[in-house]
Write a protein that binds this DNA or RNA. Structure first.
Length: 516
RNA sequence: GUCCCCAUAGUCUAGCGGUUAGGACGCCACCCUUUCAAGGUGGAGGUCACGGGUUCGAAUCCCGUUGGGGAUGCCA
């Protein structure tokens, strides 16, 4: 058999019945990477044939998520293409024409069984443990009788007439290898519903064939649908594409990843402060490997190296810890400007503005004060870029996501007030000698107003342990709690510089009151 | 019930007949250190699901078993 030299054309075909989830995103990434690696085309097609559950909002959201991930498509919604339209609901004309063709070829037949009858028979057969699909009772209705019943307006579906004499359906899956299904196992499934709409297994073939898709790369859950679809291609007389199935993504409990495992949508990860390239990196690794040892890479490396024969067959458990680690490594290398750009939307969400007077509790719930409006936050960031960028070194080694950076740095945004962690206060502020320590710290810093910098602050405060004859740890932890409200915080001297003398002074005075 | 697929440490994986079974996340310890991290160093963790073959030799090839997943819709 000669292999036709064919242009690589792959597609991602989500149904807009929800937002883009992790599994779908990975399928999209693999298709995209395969296309880019092989100089082919990546096509986006929206399978919106289920009017009950499909919404245009979902479509818009899916597109947004794909773009955010950094994927681009050569044909599809928004970009068009010569094989459009790319919304299934706009392709209905082609389905009707193909049905006429199938009727002419005697490859389909009308079925007058009602859904209720079908369900009843299926149940009975299941009960008797003998169910193996539709019993084909309408297959032998004569042409004349069928025509008469259709003419009389009797509701009917159109079923594929499986060629009983065909051998088993075999195909070489590009991930799973040789796969074979007994023809006896396949029933005459419905192609066109009684309302005239086409079913998935029918449209998907027609669309893929008409769009000249060369490789169908999709979820494992379609492996068992593949023989049916091969039969449709054959009935249609259209060439069968190559298939590559991707194993499922599982939750920590080993069950298929779903909402009950927590966040599963791409958008949710975006909102939690993950970066697109980190998510892309992690997802690419979930079922594919570059060489067995490389774990950190960018989209370019992916599109330069992706290949289906390095795709794993085992289902993979989604490990958020590793995603966090990859995201953390991204934050460490991204630099202050990019970090601030990513931080701003989160600051806006919480109304955090430099020098603000809002007080937050540990969960970042609003305790007191007003939320700053996003316009003034953005303006302040523009006007004081250096101050905001100075936050980066404080959290770059600590925050795994941008969202984590918010509670970590919220003390920088509360002006002259501090939210105190009770245990930290009783441990460090109400301890013996705390008031003296804080008083001395205040005095030491007060002389620095003209030379306020991390290094001068550090120089002065470092003198305290010897002066007071107290262990450094005791001193610095007391100051830390006084200024940050907690025994755990980002580096102290840098924090003091960012707080400024006035806020520092106010916070120290208040802490001294508590200590007394 | 029937059919299909899968099986290497807690997790993701490398491995394609000869390796002390490699890497990464996570975990533990130590170092660094004013906290938390980060970083550095070291470590624990695998009878390669189980049982049979084939072979001089099997994680790798074959058969069976078990476990898991999927399909079996007028959903996609």
């Amino acid at each position: 058999m000669t292999e036709m030299i064919q242009e690589v054309r792959v597609r991602f075909a989500p149904s807009p019945t929800g937002n883009l989830h992790i599994g779908g995103a990975r399928t999209a990434i693999y298709n995209w990477a395969f296309a880019r690696r092989n100089g082919g085309k990546f096509i986006l097609r929206i399978e919106d044939t289920d009017p009950e559950r499909s919404t245009s909002e979902n479509t818009a959201q899916i597109i947004r998520s794909l773009k955010w991930l950094g994927l681009d498509w050569d044909e599809g919604p928004e970009v068009g293409g010569e094989y459009g339209p790319y919304l299934q609901t706009e392709r209905f004309a082609t389905y009707g024409a193909a049905l006429e063709d199938l009727k002419a070829k005697d490859a389909v037949y009308p079925c007058f069984c009602t859904p209720e009858e079908l369900a009843e028979r299926r149940e009975a057969a299941m009960e008797a443990k003998t169910y193996s699909g539709y019993d084909r009772r309408c297959r032998d209705i004569s042409f004349e009788e069928a025509a008469a019943r259709i003419k009389a307006g009797e509701p009917h579906t159109w079923r594929l007439k499986i060629p009983l004499d065909r051998g088993d359906v075999t195909f070489n899956d590009l991930v799973f290898g040789a796969t074979s299904f007994p023809i006896t196992q396949l029933d005459d499934f419905i192609l066109v519903r009684s309302d005239g709409s086409p079913t998935y297994n029918y449209v998907v073939c027609l669309d893929d064939a008409l769009m000249k898709i060369s490789h169908v790369i999709r979820g494992d859950d379609h492996l068992s649908n593949t023989p049916k679809q091969i039969l449709v291609y054959e009935a249609l007389g259209m060439p069968t594409p190559r298939f590559a199935h991707l194993s499922m993504i599982l939750g920590p409990d080993g069950k298929r990843l779903s909402k009950r495992h927590g966040a599963t949508s791409v958008e949710a990860y975006k909102d939690e402060g993950y970066f697109a390239d980190a998510l892309l990196n992690y997802l690419a690794l979930l079922g594919w490997s570059l060489d067995g040892s490389t774990t950190l890479f960018d989209a370019q490396v992916l599109t330069d190296n992706f290949s289906l024969d390095r795709v794993s067959k085992n289902p993979a458990v989604f490990d958020e810890k590793k995603l966090e680690w990859i995201n953390a490594s991204r934050i460490k290398e991204m630099g202050a400007p990019a970090f601030v750009d990513a931080l701003v939307p989160h600051l806006c969400d919480y109304g955090l503005i430099r020098g603000g007077s809002t007080v937050y509790d540990n969960e970042l719930g609003l305790v007191d004060g007003k939320l700053a409006d996003t316009a003034s936050i953005k303006a302040d960031v523009e006007a004081n870029r250096a101050w905001y960028e100075a936050i980066y070194p404080l959290v770059a080694e600590r925050a795994r996501t941008i969202a984590e950076a918010i509670p970590m740095t919220s003390y920088l945004f509360s002006g002259d007030t501090v939210f105190y962690d009770e245990t930290s206060v009783s441990k460090c502020l109400k301890a013996e000698g705390a008031a003296v320590i804080l008083k001395n710290a205040e005095e030491a810093l007060s002389g620095l107003q003209q030379s306020w910098s991390t290094s001068s602050i550090e120089e002065e405060l470092r003198k305290l342990p010897e002066q007071l004859g107290v262990k450094p740890k005791v001193i610095f932890q007391a100051v830390r709690v006084a200024l940050c409200g907690n025994v755990v915080s980002p580096p102290l001297f840098e924090s003091i510089e960012l707080l400024g003398w006035e806020n520092t002074e106010a916070r120290l005075k208040k802490a001294i009151e508590i200590a007394n």
